[in-house]
Structures are given as C-alpha cells and as structure tokens.
C-alpha cells in the first residue's frame, strides 16, 4: 500500500507515534523514527520496524527548534531520498488549572505541540512541492475541539494544530500535498495512564462506545489518510474518539 514511500513520524518512540510508525511500516513504508529523549525506546521501535522487512532509522530532534528540524528532514532525505508522508505527532502535556498555570508551562506546550508542527510542516513542504506529492497528517486531539479543564495550554495548541491543518491544506493543495488531522479521544497511552482511576472513570462516561481507544485505532486512520484511498480528502479533522464529540 505504501511500498517504497518514506514516512517521518515525530515523537515515534512511544504511544500513538510508535503505533503509527509500526502501522505505516506494516504497509511497506520506510520510517524515520524521530524522538526527543527516549533513545532506547526509539531503538526498540527501529528494531520492530526492521523485523517487518522495511527500513527504519532513528533521528533525535527537538521539533520546537528550527535548526534541529531542518537537520532532521535533511538527514531523512539523505537516508531515503524522499519524504512522502509526514506525521506530526510529537507532543507533551503540562496540565494545570488556568489560574495556576505558569507562563513557562503554557509556552513549552505551545512550542512543542503547535510550533513543532509548523516547523516540521515548513521543513518538508519544500521537498513535497518538488515531488508534487505528499501527505501531512497532524495528530491533534479531541480536546482541541471540545476544550478540557486543566489543559488550557494543550487545548490551545491542539486547536491551533487544527487551524494550521486547514491553512496548510489550502496553501499546498495545488501542489498535490494533502493535509489532514486526526483528533484522538481517550486513548490508552503513557499520557492517559497518568490520570487517576477516578478521572478515567468519569471520562469514560463521556464516551458512547464506553471504552478506551487503542493507539492502533489512531494508527489505522493515519495509514488511511496516508494512502491512495484518501486522495480526495484534505483539510479535515477526523475524530477518533468512540463518539465522544460529534
């Protein structure tokens, strides 16, 4: 399905990013496993991908730093010769009530989650324009649509990603670059495991399907958006949330 294509997945060492990297690899894409801090985990993902019979390389880069991002994309092109798919997945949380949230907590989340998406998109757009083809898939969040107490920074960043997705889609459509977002709901990852049992319980009451999503549920939609099957879809945000927000 994606044979011979190159996918750059940011924040691919864990959670949803890892599942996306593996899913794209299963469908034949070679993968650049970007990570920020978890080198050992990234190495594990590389090993798992190589076991699937495709190529994988891990590259450390901080997506919030322009120079670091430029190097990431340059190295990716050097390794595999093209970038056909970019998945902007790298994200962090620094939850706090608005009244308690420090400026620094706000800035850091915006820097990684929103500016990181902008920088990576900008850095690959040149290559994709030359190729006259490309897919960019941004991992937003359902809270970017609905809002969520305690996550002013994260929600602002993710809502920003959805807006960025629409603008990028419009700007690059004439060059056959398709840009979409996915908005995962309550997905079982390290990030959600930090929530207390009570918090998890009360959140589940908001989910019509009455269960947590799996990283693979998100990964399969990303694979669809990266594939030929999705070649008339751009600028959309697909909710993967068990019906939480309609």
């Amino acid at each position: 399905m994606l044979q011979g294509q190159t996918a750059v997945v940011t924040g691919a060492s864990r959670g949803i990013g890892r599942a996306i990297a593996l899913e794209l690899a299963k469908n034949g894409a070679n993968i650049i496993v970007n990570y920020s801090g978890s080198e050992a985990k990234a190495e594990e993902v590389v090993g798992e991908i190589q076991d699937l019979g495709v190529k994988a390389v891990k590259i450390q880069a901080n997506v919030a730093d322009e120079e670091s991002v430029k190097q990431l994309m340059k190295q990716a092109i050097k390794e595999f010769g093209s970038i056909d798919i970019l998945v902007n997945n790298a994200g962090i949380t620094k939850d706090n009530l608005l009244m308690r949230m420090k400026e620094d907590e706000f800035d850091q989340v915006i820097q990684t989650n929103l500016k990181g998406t902008f920088l990576c998109t900008k850095a690959v757009s040149r290559q994709m324009m030359k190729q006259k083809a490309g897919r960019i898939i941004n991992v937003a969040s359902i809270v970017g649509v609905s809002g969520n107490p305690g996550q002013a920074n994260y929600v602002a960043a993710k809502a920003g990603v959805i807006g960025l997705t629409k603008t990028t889609a419009k700007e690059l459509a004439s060059r056959n670059i398709l840009v979409n977002a996915v908005a995962p709901g309550f997905i079982s990852t390290d990030m959600t495991d930090q929530l207390s049992e009570e918090q998890q319980e009360s959140l589940l009451q908001l989910v019509p399907l009455e269960r947590l999503g799996k990283p693979e549920d998100v990964a399969r939609v990303v694979r669809f958006l990266a594939s030929e099957d999705a070649n008339y879809i751009t600028g959309q945000t697909i909710h993967i949330d068990g019906g939480m927000v309609m």
Partner: peptide, 11 residues
C-alpha cells in the same frame, strides 16, 4: 505567477 509559483521558482 501566484505566490506559490514564486516560492517554487526561487527553490
């Protein structure tokens, strides 16, 4: 040329 054309041209 539109603005994207100019960007491409510069590239």
């Amino acid at each position: 040329a539109d603005s994207l054309d100019v960007v491409e041209l510069v590239m």
